[in-house]
């Protein structure tokens, strides 16, 4: 924990030196985050469960996830989330953290992805994925958002994610951009980040997954996006589906250079 704060403090000092408006707003975000963490981040409990799950031999193949490759090599967790989503050679596709964890659980442990995809949030194996997510993202806290956009599949997912961002449909004609396409707007009292901009995307992408104080739940990015689509009055996105990954690529690429403050804390 103290180590994390040192990194954050370093970021703080850099911001002071550069003195730009964007940096000062990031400083505000960091200061606010540190303040919230004064009493500890409730996600720590979920992350601790995740760490145990990572190391426990489970599933039909009675294996742990310690050989799981999140992109930086088997078993490397530190900083891995800040570089996701990414293109994975072995699966031949772009994956976010949750779809990648499902690949590892299937290949290493023999746990069927279907039980997770067809499951419910905060229940069963999907809840276990969430705990693993809490563990993994904690290990990218304070890291720079740095997705690798060189692979053509990443570029394509970015383009399709951007299309999905502006895609208006359903009985209320809403898109993501309806609420997140202008600066300084809010719904009721809730501030809305402008996700088209680096600053807004960094604030949004960089602070999820998060612990939600209002309902005491830890929400992954899949969970967050699922509820966005619900409120858009669109049909439900399938867990780990390409639209959720494409949107994640669009957000992470737009947020590039920002700071991961994960797990976040939300109202």
């Amino acid at each position: 924990m103290r180590h994390t704060f040192t990194i954050l403090l370093a970021g703080f000092a850099c911001g002071l030196l550069s003195g730009t408006a964007a940096a000062s707003s990031e400083m505000d975000a960091i200061a606010k985050y540190r303040e919230l963490l004064a009493d500890g981040n409730p996600s720590e409990l979920v992350a601790a469960q995740g760490e145990e799950l990572w190391k426990t031999k489970r599933g039909p193949q009675q294996a742990s996830l310690e050989r799981c490759d999140l992109g930086l090599g088997p078993g490397v967790i530190k900083g891995a989330y800040a570089k996701m989503p990414r293109y994975f050679k072995d699966t031949g596709r772009v994956q976010d953290l949750e779809s990648r964890l499902m690949t590892c659980m299937e290949n290493l442990q023999g746990i069927e992805p279907k039980s997770i995809v067809d499951g419910k949030f905060l229940k069963g194996e999907r809840e276990k994925v969430a705990a693993l997510v809490a563990y993994v993202v904690t290990e990218s806290n304070g890291a720079r958002i740095d997705v690798d956009m060189r692979h053509p599949e990443m570029k394509k997912m970015y383009e399709m994610g951007k299309m999905a961002f502006y895609f208006r449909a359903g009985p209320m004609d809403f898109s993501c951009a309806t609420c997140h396409g202008e600066e300084g707007k809010r719904i009721r009292m809730q501030d809305l980040p402008d996700l088209r901009t680096q600053k807004g995307a960094a604030a949004g992408w960089g602070s999820w997954p998060a612990y939600r104080v209002s309902n005491g739940e830890f929400w992954t990015m899949q969970h967050r996006l699922n509820d966005c689509f619900r409120q858009q009055r669109l049909p439900e996105p399938i867990y780990g589906s390409d639209v959720t990954i494409a949107l994640s690529v669009y957000l992470a690429a737009t947020a590039k250079g920002g700071t991961m403050l994960t797990p976040g804390i939300k109202r």
Partner: peptide, 12 residues
């Protein structure tokens, strides 16, 4: 992608 990414849930 949109066609394969969504499913019917409840009234949606």
């Amino acid at each position: 992608m949109m066609d394969r990414s969504f499913k019917t849930t409840g009234i949606a």
